[in-house]
């Protein structure tokens, strides 16, 4: 065993310092929002760390004139509906991309991938006009349709990654035993890639839940979601920060909770799609 050199000691120290800095940098903005959400208005507009905590803000955002209740419902319905449509469709497509070789496959996969890179503002321009003519502005359906434009391609690639990692021998055996492809997918492949499918679903849910641009443009009253609801706390008297912080908790906490429960798959799925 070589003695620990000065060089190694120095970098170990740097690493510890860096660890502390990273922790502060990552956690502080969230911590401050959490803290503010328990403050009364007077304390919110100060840098106090010690204060008399209150739950008033969490109650008040559900009352007049803020009424975050229906917004929460809109966010839930839109996100669940998007995932419910996107994930089955994506899983089937991912299976085909992963297990079949055919003419034009690469071009098709690139097309699916590239659709993620179309700026949302390009997508929303024509749909705004279309939905206006169909009287679908300010409906949840409109949001679900547009959310599919980015949740679906991402999910196809993510699920494909999980299927690629699965050896195809088991499936081949099942085919020999007389199963057709749909039975194979349903009874053999699907159970094995379930973690991947769930991860993609969680991802799609988070993306829809956090979506802002489409909801900002397409909704104004009935179908407003939580993220756009924040804009309503930006009044002519300025931003009501104590309410903003409480509403932020409403948006953050569910997302943090579900991403923590599937933590390991989450990190795997996250890093897989991007680089391979």
């Amino acid at each position: 065993m070589a003695a620990i050199t000065r060089d190694e000691k120095f970098w170990e120290g740097m690493r510890r310092l860096g660890f502390a800095a990273t922790f502060l940098f990552m956690v502080f903005p969230i911590f401050w929002m959490v803290l503010t959400s328990f403050k009364v208005a007077r304390d919110a507009y100060s840098t106090k760390i010690f204060f008399a905590p209150t739950l008033h803000n969490f109650i008040s955002i559900f009352q007049d004139p803020y009424n975050f209740g229906p917004l929460l419902l809109n966010s839930l319905i839109v996100s669940f509906a998007t995932v419910a449509i996107a994930i089955p469709a994506a899983t089937c497509a991912a299976y085909a991309f992963s297990r079949y070789q055919f003419q034009g496959k690469n071009a098709l996969m690139v097309a699916v991938l590239s659709s993620q890179f179309v700026p949302p503002v390009v997508v929303v321009l024509p749909f705004f006009i279309l939905f206006k003519n169909l009287h679908l502005l300010d409906t949840r359906l409109a949001l679900v349709i547009l959310n599919l434009s980015f949740v679906l391609p991402f999910a196809v690639w993510m699920v494909k990654g999980f299927i690629d990692a699965l050896p195809s021998d088991i499936e081949a055996a099942a085919v020999v035993d007389g199963c057709n492809r749909f039975q194979v997918l349903r009874h053999i492949t699907l159970p094995l890639i379930m973690p991947g499918v769930v991860t993609s679903a969680v991802f799609g849910f988070i993306q829809s839940w956090n979506e802002f641009l489409f909801a900002l443009i397409l909704t104004n009253q009935k179908a407003v979601t939580l993220t756009v609801g924040l804009m309503g706390l930006h009044t002519d008297k300025g931003i009501l920060w104590e309410h903003m912080a409480a509403a932020s908790m409403l948006i953050m906490v569910p997302i943090f909770a579900i991403s923590l429960t599937i933590r390991e798959y989450f990190i795997e799925g996250l890093t897989m799609g991007a680089v391979k």
């Binding site: 929002m33 756009v228 912080a245 948006i251 991403s259 990190i267």
Partner: peptide, 17 residues
């Protein structure tokens, strides 16, 4: 995971605050 999973709209408000 937290900063990454946070809604971008929220990031803006949080830093503005």
């Amino acid at each position: 995971i937290f900063p990454f999973a946070m809604a971008p709209a929220l990031k803006g408000f949080s830093w503005r605050f």
